Computed example of a mutant assay.
Amino acid sequence: MFTDKISIQVTAGNGGHGIVSWRREKYVPKGGPAGGNGGRGGDVIFVANENIFDLDAFRHIRIIKAQNGQSGGSQRKRGANGEDLIIKVPLGTLLKDKATGEVLFDFTYHEQKQIVCKGGFGGRGNACFATPTNRAPNKATNGRPGTEALIELELKMIADVGLVGFPNAGKSTLLTQVTTAKIKTASYPFTTLRPNLGYIKTYPHERGILLADIPGIIKGASDNKGLGLEFLRHIQRTQLLVFMVDLSAIDDRDPFQDLLTLRDELNKYDKSLLEKPSIVILNKLDTDEAQENKVGFHKQLKEHNITAPNFEICAITKEGLPEVVAHLKQSLQIARLHPETTV
């Protein structure tokens, strides 16, 4: 099961109590106050980690609490501080206030840290209250409680390229062919039930390309049909979109209408998605039906003024894939050097 949204009660550690204690020592009849201060409560700190890709670790966790500080001791001994609780989350995690939905923090790079709840201060022992006029104070203070918050973690994957297509269009096959990903592929719809990531290695000392394959989109996805809104959020942060179309027209589908439907669903969900650079991949070129359909498809692209670059491929045999990978490398190189440039 893929977990990309979770609600958690987070509580920092309480501060330890200060104590009332007296110096007891031979030949010192009036040793005076010697109560130590309490230790500080532990913080709850969230840290982004590039080696984590989902929120599955939190699936059965609803309460997170850091360690309390220890109470002070005699002979002015300070209580030990509570240990900070470090929580690792994947890149792309949004930390939200559960009640208001306000985004409190956005984890976008490796080892980025944010203190979500602060531990309480330790209380003061009676040694802190001694004055020239009150040399034997008989009071101490309790530690402060740690802060707490009801938060929501929402994952929006940070990938360079997002693969978008109907079920059984061949997105997962493409991902396995051009990246190091090992994922399930089969010739039936909805084989992919969770987003998958794959990495294309580029030249030495150059940043590679991270691809995200989300489960197939169907008409009405923006209204939460099929797997719906559950995974559309994962393509919001991509730099480039790949619309993948089954050109063989399986189940009497219309390939060009599939493309229009995909674009329409993304537009309904988030209009800015269609402003991203994109390409169109026409898959299953090895079939006779695809050969018959491609002429009409290109004609309709011109009629609808869709100018995105398009590539004809067969993902299974790898035909046309080198050209696709080369274009992705070139496009992303431009996008990274000039983020304001549309590829």
Rank of each mutant, 00 (worst) to 15 (best):
G36A: 04
F53T: 14
N142L: 14
Q112H: 04
N305Y: 08
D84Q: 11
A212P: 13
R40A: 04
K284P: 06
E303S: 08
D213E: 10
P255S: 07
K5T: 15
T147F: 09
S278R: 07
E154W: 02
V116S: 06
M244G: 02
L273H: 07
K96I: 07
K96F: 00
G69R: 13
D258P: 08
T100G: 03
D97P: 10
R194D: 15
F107Q: 06
T180I: 13
G32Y: 02
F2L: 09
A34W: 02
P255W: 08
G72P: 10
F166E: 09
E323A: 14
P33F: 01
A308E: 15
A326T: 11
D246G: 03
T133F: 11
R24Y: 00
L85A: 08
F107M: 08
G162Q: 12
K225V: 07
L174Q: 05
E83F: 02
G119D: 12
I151V: 15
T100I: 02
V245A: 05
S248L: 04
Q333N: 12
D106R: 13
S331W: 10
G198Q: 11
E303H: 09
L95M: 03
K284W: 05
L85C: 12
Q330G: 09
L163W: 01
V161K: 03
I217C: 03
K276H: 14
